[in-house]
């Protein structure tokens, strides 16, 4: 079982302004603003990292225990996936053919 990688919904437009990400979702005309740590998580979601890997990076960058970083990352990812801002993609190795 391969872990899903997190990737931004390609239909969105987003920009980091002074370290905080603003996401525009044209489909439902909503602008989402993320705080600094959520922005960090968002910017690590490049299609190559799992929530667990992102939580490790979060704990390395911020004053937080790895367990708390993992729980908070999972909670945020669930929220962003529910809003269709983040998508889970299969691991790159698992999706290759040929």
């Amino acid at each position: 079982m391969t872990e899903p990688r997190l990737v931004h919904n390609p239909l969105l437009a987003w920009r980091a302004i002074e370290g905080e990400v603003v996401i525009i979702s044209p489909e439902d005309s909503v602008v989402h603003e993320l705080n600094a740590t959520a922005s960090f998580v968002w910017m690590q979601a490049n299609g190559e990292r799992t929530p667990e890997e992102i939580a490790v990076l979060l704990a390395a960058e911020y004053e937080v225990a790895p367990e708390e970083a993992l729980a908070d990352t999972r909670e945020l990812v669930a929220h962003l996936e529910a809003k269709r801002l983040l998508l889970s993609s299969p691991a790159a190795e698992g999706s290759r053919h040929g």
């Binding site: 989402h32 603003e33 993320l34 705080n35 600094a36 740590t37 959520a38 960090f40 998580v41 979060l58 960058e61 911020y62 004053e63 937080v64 908070d72 990352t73 909670e75 945020l76 929220h79 962003l80 809003k83």
Partner: peptide, 10 residues
């Protein structure tokens, strides 16, 4: 070298 942590949120 570590930044102050706040819970990630929208």
């Amino acid at each position: 070298g570590k930044r102050k942590y706040i819970k990630p949120a929208c």
